[in-house]
Design a protein around this nucleic acid. Structure first.
Length: 280
DNA sequence: CCTTCTCCCTGCAAGC
DNA sequence: TGCTTGCAGGGAGAAG
């Protein structure tokens, strides 16, 4: 399930095979993913040169010649696969097939089709609906304690729900929200507006650390995520709390027999994992 | 405006 | 074995 670290891993994997190359062949195998693809999508991509690939939050920004941007969101099960010179016969979930001018085949595969793509003029990027409301990238300098405290101050929601709002932190998702809150020793149920001062500084540091470590590990491969090369990410082995309900907390000596260990609760319809002793 | 809920889609795993 | 059920999750839009 692609959150920021998984999307960044995909970006880094695609960059060497796509940047600087032209798309010699583009095949679009259905007219819609989550939303309809742009009219003439494959035809508009064919022959184009890819200048660079950037990321904003969970969005890939594939910069094309003629100042146009191919926007791609992986949804929950979207995957770009680098197949090399020979692509296997496309399966039912292979929706977009590419071949570059150097003969490398790349496939967009998305069983659940929650992913989507768009083509946007570069000058319109900042006001396009997908990106316009996004908050700062958590790894950048604009994401600091003062910003986050201000962003949380007016929110009357549990802290974890606020973190999942892409206007607050672009790229946060369900797994890394639990992991970041554990590292910051903050309860996911605490009201967002009560997080300031040292608490918010701990949270900013925790988010930056967790994301940096997850990117270094190639993301987390639970079900869907793979690096474009096909390699697995391995940050899932570093989860402190996610998916570990009932296990002892790795940060304190609490005994699961007495405390229940790591708890799973549901907030806004999503699972949250935390230690009720360590996180306040 | 703000927050919460529901739905989209499929594969997988657990339970009967 | 085979069926049903529930869960996973990002984001849009509806509902409150």
């Amino acid at each position: 399930m692609p959150e920021l670290p998984e999307v960044e891993t995909v970006r880094r994997g695609l960059l060497p095979v796509l940047a600087g190359h032209r798309l010699a062949v583009v095949e679009q195998r259905r007219s819609d993913l989550r939303f309809p693809l742009p009219v003439d999508f494959a035809r508009r991509l064919a022959g184009r040169r890819i200048e660079n690939i950037e990321r904003r939050g969970k969005y890939l920004l594939i910069r094309l010649d003629a100042d146009e941007v191919w926007l791609a969101h992986l949804g929950m099960s979207g995957r770009f696969c680098i197949d090399g010179p020979d692509t296997p016969a496309p399966g039912p979930h292979d929706h977009v097939l590419l071949r570059t001018d150097s003969g490398v085949c790349v496939r967009f595969h998305d069983p659940r089709r929650f992913g989507f793509m768009d083509l946007v003029p570069a000058e319109a990027l900042d006001r396009c609906p997908h990106l316009a409301g996004l908050g700062p990238d958590p790894l950048g300098p604009a994401f600091d304690g003062a910003y986050l405290a201000g962003s949380l101050a007016a929110r009357r929601t549990p802290l974890k729900a606020a973190l999942l709002d892409q206007r607050v932190v672009a790229g946060m998702g369900n797994i890394y929200a639990s992991e970041s809150l554990f590292r910051a020793r903050l309860s996911p149920a605490r009201m967002a507006a009560t997080v300031g001062g040292k608490r918010v500084d701990r949270l900013v540091a925790a988010i930056k650390e967790v994301f940096a470590e997850a990117i270094a590990a190639g993301g987390s491969s639970l079900r869907d995520h793979r690096q474009p090369s096909g390699e697995l990410g391995f940050f899932q082995h570093g989860f402190a709390v996610y998916g570990r309900a009932g296990e002892p907390c790795p940060g304190c000596r609490c005994q699961p027999a007495r405390t229940g260990g790591i708890r799973r609760i549901v907030q806004s319809g999503r699972s949250t994992f935390y230690c009720g002793l360590r996180q306040r």
